[in-house]
Amino acid sequence: MMEYLVSLSIGVLTATGVFLTLRARTFPVVLGLTLLAYAVNLFLFSMGRLTIGLPAIIDKTAKAAQYSDPLPQALVLTAIVIAFGMTAFLIVLALKARGELDSDHVDGLADNQQAPGQRDIGKNIDPDRGAAE
């Protein structure tokens, strides 16, 4: 029963994550990546096999097979920290893009523009040049 629940959770999280990542606005994309990170954390955790109420460290009294694998727990911890940092960075970057491009579209398009735009290629003001003057 637990296996079904866990695998269903991973599946639902991944599916919603993929769906949201494919949206055109930066905020859903950030949410989608967060959900994908949750899904992968749960997945990593279950790769040490699902156990209930078992210690992660084998003591002398426990039988050899009765422990939960500590390594995936360490991996999940690392993955959580990294995903957390990356998400924070991405949110700040998305805000910066919103401010600079006047749009929260991932391609920096204004709301009334439909075509994948090259509108600002021609008037590219290179920041290096701008500051060098």
Binding site: T21, T26, V29, L33, L36, A37, A39, V40, I82, A83, M86, F89, L90, L93, A94, K96, A97, E100, L101, V106, D107, G108, D120, I121, N124, I125, D126, P127, G130
Partner: peptide, 21 residues
């Protein structure tokens, strides 16, 4: 900084985050 750089950076970050997952 710069607008084009920000836009390219956003794409780069998102695709690499998906890659990490």
């Amino acid at each position: 900084g710069g607008r084009l750089r920000t836009r390219a950076g956003l794409h780069y970050v998102v695709i690499n985050l998906i890659g990490s997952t």
